[in-house]
Amino acid sequence: MGGTDRTAENAAEAGGIDGTDDDALYVLTAVLLTPAQFPSVLGDDYPAACAALDLEPYAEGYGLVLGQDGAGARWTVIVDDVSLVAVAIASWDCGMEYELSPDERSVVAALPGWPLAVASAAPDLPAPHDPEPEEGDRAPLAPPSADTWGPAQRRLGADEVALQWAAWRSQMDDEGTVDSDTEAGPGTGTDAGTDAGSDRPHDPQEPHDPYDGVRRALAELRGYLEEPPPVGRVRSSFAAGGARMLRADGPGWSLVARTDDMAFVLLDDEPREVLPVARGTKLPALLEALDAMAVRPS
């Protein structure tokens, strides 16, 4: 997910939500909500992420500014000035100061709560808390619980694998299967071209095979090439060595892959398991085709 938490010392006062000093927002962090970059915790694709915030999925996207009001309450302010938010995020990522102060005219909505966990807090304010609800208000936004497993946690897990690719890849041998010397890690890899058993009815006497879900995910990915999914389901970003990092999601599954290497799949039905997929003979062509159709950050 784009953006970084800033320290409390760097929290800056942004323009008031409605122009009054009492409602001034003390900005803590910000993220982009665009077809190519959006908090995956909100949905499998860009339209779903927008729907989670009651927004129209405009192609230009939005910026989400997370902060506290003068009473310390959590607010997510949504603005349509995407360029301003992108500059702020890039500056913070480089360790530079940047006071993010969106113009009031760019504010689309102000929603109570934060959809993401924020580690910092504004100085000299009460501890972050949800604002007092008023009649008709929507429930405050909140990050997903770490104690359960579901679609949001699965997508966040896939994001983490992408961020820590080298660490996960180091647990595999050159064929993309688990290194036999590694005690902890995911189970045995599978070739992306393996179809065996994918159409057979499940025999309750047979042992559970988590790779049934992996084969289903790969089949749905091949289906994306024939019938394009909602925008943002397949995203491509920069990776070292001239490769691309792919993130793809679908009902019950998430995929992380490098176009020059292997892939990992996470499933709703396999809590906290990261299942490696060997490069094999068919995965390279699939990844190349997905990269060609993927949305990319501008």
Score class of each variant (00 low, 15 high):
237 S>L: 09
34 T>C: 07
109 A>W: 03
151 P>R: 08
209 D>K: 07
41 V>L: 10
110 A>I: 06
123 P>H: 08
127 A>W: 02
134 E>V: 12
243 A>Q: 04
160 E>P: 06
42 L>E: 11
266 L>V: 13
200 R>V: 15
221 L>N: 09
243 A>N: 04
160 E>K: 15
204 P>I: 05
142 A>P: 04
279 R>W: 03
59 A>P: 04
137 D>E: 06
101 S>P: 06
92 W>T: 00
71 A>K: 11
15 G>F: 14
104 E>V: 13
37 Q>N: 10
16 G>T: 05
78 I>M: 03
216 R>T: 15
166 A>E: 10
70 G>C: 09
224 Y>C: 06
112 P>F: 00
247 R>C: 14
232 G>K: 03
295 V>N: 01
238 F>Y: 15
204 P>R: 02
32 L>A: 06
142 A>N: 04
77 V>G: 01
154 R>G: 10
172 M>F: 08
73 A>C: 14
176 G>K: 04
174 D>H: 10
159 D>C: 08
169 R>C: 02
166 A>L: 08
173 D>T: 05
176 G>Y: 01
265 V>W: 12
6 R>I: 00
39 P>R: 01
184 A>G: 10
121 A>K: 10
64 L>M: 02
256 V>K: 04
117 A>Y: 13
245 M>I: 10
33 L>G: 05
261 D>Q: 05
122 A>M: 08
119 A>P: 00
83 S>K: 14
291 D>H: 07
127 A>T: 05
60 E>I: 13
92 W>L: 00
77 V>N: 02
143 P>E: 04
244 R>P: 04
67 G>F: 02
148 T>C: 06
20 T>M: 10
293 M>D: 05
171 Q>D: 08
231 V>D: 09
250 G>M: 14
13 E>G: 11
63 G>C: 04
229 P>C: 03
161 V>G: 00
254 S>K: 06
238 F>L: 12
42 L>V: 13
158 A>N: 11
273 E>F: 15
130 D>W: 02
258 R>A: 12
107 V>Y: 05
264 F>Y: 11
71 A>G: 13
2 G>N: 15
143 P>L: 04
233 R>W: 10
240 A>S: 14
15 G>M: 10
63 G>V: 03
72 G>N: 06
5 D>V: 01
224 Y>R: 03
118 V>K: 00
30 A>S: 07
186 P>Q: 07
298 S>H: 14
276 P>L: 02
222 R>F: 08
79 V>G: 06
173 D>E: 05
244 R>F: 07
165 W>N: 07
170 S>W: 11
134 E>M: 11
171 Q>E: 08
199 D>Q: 09
66 L>K: 00
44 D>H: 11
25 L>V: 00
90 A>H: 03
188 T>D: 09
